[in-house]
């Protein structure tokens, strides 16, 4: 039955192209969600398996990345729903200019990475969606079923916290 064969091949081709195009970005996103390389790989693999089973639901290639991120977030939520320990509360005051200035003077990517690792998940996740997924506040809000204003606050606090963490380290090293 040539038409069916052709259809299967085109689906396979679409899937392979999607894996090649987005698996790296998805891995990075998964890593920043779970902060564990092995688990991130498992998450990405499971995400793509689910994507394969539901590939017919993807109508627009432009939406492939946010679609995959949504699947991955659900997989992550299933795996880690009971393992969240995000209890750090942050104030949302705008820091002093010196504090704002500290991160860019305070360290390399490794230090920023360390600070990222310490960020609570509720800040790390939208930040990863924005920085790695290229998603706008509205898109993140739609994906996480929140108000755009709430997402903006999370992103604001995420950077505020990050800079605070980096500022503290820089201060300890005498960099400030």
């Amino acid at each position: 039955m040539p038409p069916v064969h052709k259809d299967v091949n085109s689906k396979q081709r679409q899937y392979e192209a999607m894996v090649r195009a987005w698996s790296a970005d998805l891995y990075r996103f998964a890593f920043w969600l779970c902060r564990n390389e092995a688990l991130a790989q498992d998450l990405v693999q499971e995400t793509f398996l689910r994507a394969w089973k539901n590939l017919d639901a993807l109508r627009d290639a432009e939406l492939a990345k946010p679609w995959l991120i949504t699947i991955l977030r659900r997989e992550h939520a299933r795996l880690y729903e009971r393992k969240r320990f995000d209890t750090v509360e942050l104030d949302d005051t705008v820091p002093e200019d010196t504090a704002w200035a500290s991160p860019e003077r305070s360290g390399d990517a490794a230090h920023v990475r360390d600070a990222m690792m310490k960020l609570p998940n509720k800040y790390r996740e939208p930040l990863a969606m924005q920085v790695l997924g290229g998603m706008s506040c509205d898109e993140i809000a739609a994906a996480t079923e929140q108000q755009p204003g709430a997402v903006m606050t999370q992103l604001f606090r995420a950077r505020q916290r990050l800079k605070s963490l980096l500022g503290g380290r820089a201060a300890a090293e005498g960099a400030l």
Partner: peptide
């Protein structure tokens, strides 16, 4: 800072990940 953040989040991807998927 955003450049640094992007650089920091750009963690190395395990070799052969796409092929394993």
């Amino acid at each position: 800072f955003e450049d640094q953040l992007e650089q920091a989040m750009d963690v190395p991807v395990p070799a052969g990940l796409a092929d394993r998927i």
